[in-house]
Amino acid sequence: MRRRVDVSTSRPVERLRGRAGQKQRKRRLARTRGLCERCLARGLTRLADVVDHVVPLALGGSDDDQNTRNLCEPCHLEVTAEQFGFASIGKGVDANGRPLLSDHPWNARGGTGGGSKV
């Protein structure tokens, strides 16, 4: 079941910017010595790339330290997909959701399959 989120009703949260925001992020990452909290719980060691909000700001969460956790990019992608009702990354696709099979129409070069021109 996919859950849709109506972010139009949430109130804006005032966040720190500039040097104050960088100092806040550094302090939050230091809480776990810069390691991903989800990976640590699984017995893995990975550097955290993102200070994530447990209850997203877009869903009415606060910007307090108690509402944050340190996550690596793969964990952050998973959590965000779950929170906003998107399908998780499945087999046969990369982290961006692009198909891995070379013969998939999206990966066709020069055709009209809608593939990337990169």
Rank of each mutant, 00 (worst) to 15 (best):
D64Q: 05
R15T: 09
R17Y: 05
R98C: 01
L35Q: 06
P74C: 05
V51F: 07
N70A: 11
A58C: 02
P99G: 11
S10K: 04
L16A: 14
L29T: 12
A30I: 02
W106F: 12
G111C: 01
T32F: 08
G111L: 09
E37W: 07
R19P: 00
H53G: 07
R33Y: 06
D65M: 00
R2H: 14
P56T: 03
R31A: 09
Q22V: 08
D49V: 00
Q22S: 12
G114C: 09
R33G: 12
D52Y: 03
Q24D: 14
K23G: 14
G90M: 08
D63V: 12
G97S: 00
R17F: 06
R98G: 00
G90I: 10
L57K: 03
A95C: 01
L100H: 08
G110R: 02
R28I: 12
T9F: 01
D94T: 13
S8K: 12
R15M: 03
E82C: 11
G114V: 05
G34P: 00
G85Y: 05
L47F: 08
G34Y: 00
P99D: 10
D6L: 13
L57M: 02
L35S: 04
L35C: 05
Q83E: 14
L40I: 10
L77E: 07
H104N: 15
A48P: 03
L16T: 07
G114H: 14
L44V: 06
R38G: 01
R4K: 10
D103Y: 13
N67F: 13
G97I: 07
A108M: 06
I89P: 00
N107Q: 12
L71A: 14
E78L: 14
V79A: 15
G18S: 03
L29I: 08
H76I: 13
L101D: 15
G90C: 06
L100T: 15
L101S: 15
P99Q: 12
T45V: 12
R25A: 15
S8G: 03
W106G: 09
K26G: 08
P99K: 10
A58I: 01
T68Q: 09
D64K: 01
P74W: 04
H53K: 03
A48Q: 04
L40Y: 02
R109Y: 00
V54R: 07
R38C: 07
L44G: 00
R69Y: 06
Q22R: 14
K117N: 11
A41N: 01
V13A: 15
T32N: 10
R28S: 11
R25P: 10
T32Q: 05
H104D: 15
K91P: 13
L101N: 14
D52S: 07
W106A: 07
L100C: 10
L35H: 08
K117L: 07
D63M: 03
R2Q: 12
S116A: 14
S116T: 08
